[in-house]
């Protein structure tokens, strides 16, 4: 049966939910048909997360939900109740930029900067999940695969991949150092 009926709107009162937003408990009343993107941008003023395509085709609105990169434009705000949501605003720590932010800025990985917040959220999930045990080598194709849901129209991706590669290498090197130093202990 096709959805041709044009139903009269249901009564949809906002619902109060609590979530962990960039590490802080946040309570907010939100209508059921609002997406997480609308809640962030227009409800909470966190405009760092961008909107590019309306419907999940470009990755620009990527945020992390319980650590996983997901699309805020296709996530109903009520569905993130009690979950951890991280946006680009929460990426740096203590006033210092995240290493990815520093690398993106240094190597010129952002031109217009519009895809950058989403790109950073996908990249940070990739970097955070790196372990020496899983794979001791940084590969461009793995990075490209991790970022394959984020379109960029300015850079040709070259400098984005370079920035993520540099940070990934540092992360693995640090893990290697820690491993070696703990191995040395009797």
């Amino acid at each position: 049966m096709p959805d041709t009926a044009s139903p009269s709107p249901v009564a949809v009162a906002p619902v109060l939910i609590t979530l962990q937003l960039n590490g802080e408990p946040t309570s907010v009343a939100v209508p059921p048909h609002w997406t997480l993107l609308e809640l962030l941008r227009y409800g909470l003023g966190l405009t760092g997360t961008k909107q590019g395509c309306d419907k999940g085709d470009c990755g620009t609105c990527t945020v992390r939900i319980d650590g996983e990169p997901q699309l805020a434009c296709l996530t109903l705000a009520l569905e993130v109740r009690d979950r951890h949501v991280e946006t680009v605003e929460g990426l740096g720590v203590g006033g210092e930029p995240h290493p990815l932010q520093e690398a993106f800025a240094r190597v010129g990985a952002a031109q217009c900067g519009f895809c950058t917040p989403g790109m950073l959220m996908s990249a940070s999930a990739y970097v955070d999940n790196l372990t020496l045990q899983d794979d001791p080598v940084v590969r461009r194709e793995d990075i490209a695969a991790a970022l394959a849901g984020n379109l960029c129209r300015c850079t040709g991706y070259t400098k984005i991949l370079q920035a993520v590669e540099e940070v990934a290498q540092v992360v693995l090197d640090r893990q290697r150092e820690i491993e070696e130093s703990t191995a040395e202990e009797p």
Partner: peptide, 12 residues
């Protein structure tokens, strides 16, 4: 942007 029309969301 494209908006969702109002609906009720049940979360059993």
């Amino acid at each position: 942007m494209l908006r969702l029309p109002p609906f009720a969301l049940h979360q059993p």
